[in-house]
Write a protein that binds this DNA or RNA. Sequence first.
DNA 1: AGTATACATTTGTATATACAAATATTGTAT
DNA 2: ATACAATATTTGTATATACAAATGTATACT
Lengths: 148, 148
Amino acid sequence: MNMEKVIKTDTPIPLKQRTLIHLSLVTNKINETVASQLKPYDVSLQQFNVLRILRGQKGKPANLSTLNERMVTKMSNTTRLVDKLIIKEYVKRTTCETNRRKVDIYITKAGEKALLQMDNAMKKAQDTILKNFNTEDLKNLNNLFDKF
Amino acid sequence: MNMEKVIKTDTPIPLKQRTLIHLSLVTNKINETVASQLKPYDVSLQQFNVLRILRGQKGKPANLSTLNERMVTKMSNTTRLVDKLIIKEYVKRTTCETNRRKVDIYITKAGEKALLQMDNAMKKAQDTILKNFNTEDLKNLNNLFDKF
DNA sequence: AGTATACATTTGTATATACAAATATTGTAT
DNA sequence: ATACAATATTTGTATATACAAATGTATACT
């Protein structure tokens, strides 16, 4: 990706600024690829991540606060995000037995089934996005990310 | 940044997937820092970028399509983004003389003045975000970004 | 027990963004 | 000149997100 080409500029940009712009462009590109892969399943990346977290619970229900903790992109309204998944019948929500302030959220069979298909789509997206990277590159990148 | 800590997981994540999650977390963190620095000026990062592009025009007006081309994050509605800047009196919009389908968008004196202050805020954000990076790191990071 | 405080979620509201359709203007072919 | 396609922007609408206030429940204190 040639970033100067993408944002059609010819003036040189200071290194720090360039790095942050570069990062934004990379993120945009990734989001596009991911979104287009998830589109057929009519879920957003956020919704996909919630489903993954719920699967990771292995039957144990999650409540909103734990979902929020584990979500990659924190958002202020997990209630409505879960609402969307309930409409699609991918998750179920009941009030928690032991603490009725909380809600228990589970993934349904249908959700797990759909999630399996989404996994494939995401794997495809991942391979597309990272096609130019070898293991060494990926490790270097992760190490640099740790500095943030 | 310890990503496993951020998303509170202890199960190891495959390298490719880890890389993309890591990148999302980094982006989120950066956006937070940037947004909080721009908050006092009541502009979004998008609006700030538009102002910067307009300044880069050096008096020459820009129209919506050129703005869109140069914007880091393309968005579907530059009209309304510019509307916001007009309300704040940071930019002016007139219909283009030579092609009346187009609009000429300029930054105002007030916009330039405000932008100077925002520059400082952004420089501060940048330095905060990249405080752990030396020039070598930044170059490596940019080279890896080019592989996307 | 009664009251205050903390906790977990939901709801209201304002703003942002995505996408498609509508409007206005210009260029081109007949 | 007229009709048609292309271009540039605007508007409508649906959905997403951010933030604050409201609701309902549990815990602690007197």
